[in-house]
């Protein structure tokens, strides 16, 4: 068991149901007697928690705010779910369907949300993610299918549970594949909605994916030496990274102003943008990679 103190913060896509749903132990902290009777001076240690990737739910919300319209035809066909037999494909598409679920939910398409939930349920079961999607969660989703806020809340909650289960059972590589699949699908969705209705705001959101990609690469790299599937995904992400090399994310300054009682960090700076060539290259590459994952 890894005794590492470095923790990964994961933003996986998902609406998956949880691990067992049992009661958590009442005690939240652990008190351990010292191994020596004399007081030991603990060396100050710094833990670095990194590899944080914004969730597809937030990304989908940003696309909606940027003027994207909903198009169910760009999402992964629900019928593909039965084609995924290898664990790596299942994990990648758990992320893909999670991103699709986020997109459908944010745009208030509850019927499709339930379809993608069903896909996620099937894949979770194949991956043996605890007692994936216990009847309670499915029941709650069904009861709240017409209540967008409740649906999003349940999705978020179950996503937490699955992510936790994978990490606590040393299946971080599966989690990494899920996150990668979710990020690729999120970028693919952004590229497709931009193709349909190209705006500076949508291009900005695509350009900004350069930042989470850095963390995603670091996360995937952690597991790539031990897992050929993860190595392959690493190669795909490195391809994307090369296309983002010349994408500039302008830096604001460190000023803090107030806007109706809320602090605003940074002054005016140009927003991130993409040239036509950059957009075309990113769109083409992510489409190819995504096709490899879903087919």
């Amino acid at each position: 068991m890894r005794m590492i103190k470095t923790l990964s913060a994961l933003a996986a896509t998902l609406a998956l149901a949880a691990c067992g749903g049992g009661e958590q132990p009442a005690q939240d902290t652990l008190t351990v007697p010292p191994t020596d009777s004399t007081a030991a001076v603990r060396a100050k240690r710094t833990q670095n928690i990194f590899h944080n990737i914004p969730s597809p739910m937030e990304t989908a919300g940003l696309l909606k705010k940027a003027g994207a319209e909903y198009d169910k035809d760009i999402l992964n066909d629900v019928r593909n779910v039965d084609n995924y037999t290898a664990a790596s494909k299942q994990a990648l598409n758990l992320g893909v369907y999670g991103a699709d679920l986020s997109y459908a939910s944010v745009f208030n398409n509850t019927q499709e949300s339930m379809l993608y939930t069903s896909c996620a349920q099937k894949l979770a079961k194949k991956l043996d993610v605890s007692d994936a999607f216990n009847a309670q969660v499915v029941d709650r989703l069904e009861k709240n299918r017409n209540n967008r806020d409740s649906l999003l809340s349940i999705i978020s909650d179950t996503y937490w549970q699955v992510d936790g289960y994978l990490k606590e059972n040393q299946r971080d590589n599966i989690s990494a594949l899920m996150i990668a699949g979710g990020w690729v699908e999120g970028l693919y969705i952004a590229a497709q909605v931009t193709k349909a209705h190209d705006t500076p705001e949508l291009r900005q959101r695509i350009a900004e994916q350069k930042l989470p990609l850095v963390d995603l690469l670091a996360l995937v790299r952690t597991y790539s030496p031990d897992d050929p599937a993860v190595s392959s995904v690493l190669g795909d992400l490195q391809t994307m990274d090369s296309l983002y090399t010349d994408v500039v994310i302008p830096k604001g300054n460190s000023t803090i102003t107030q806007d109706n009682g809320v602090a605003v960090i940074g002054g005016t700076a140009p927003l991130a943008a993409l040239t036509d060539a950059q957009l075309a290259a990113i769109t083409s590459a992510v489409t190819t990679i995504r096709a490899k994952y879903i087919n």
Binding site: A9, A12, R42, K44, N48, I49, N52, S55, P212
Partner: peptide, 22 residues
């Protein structure tokens, strides 16, 4: 935002996390 960041720390210890904000 569905991203769980946590550390199990003891007195005298530090932790850092990098986050992306849009």
């Amino acid at each position: 935002n569905e991203t769980f960041n946590a550390a199990q720390l003891a007195p005298g210890e530090e932790a850092t996390v990098d986050l992306t904000f849009y």
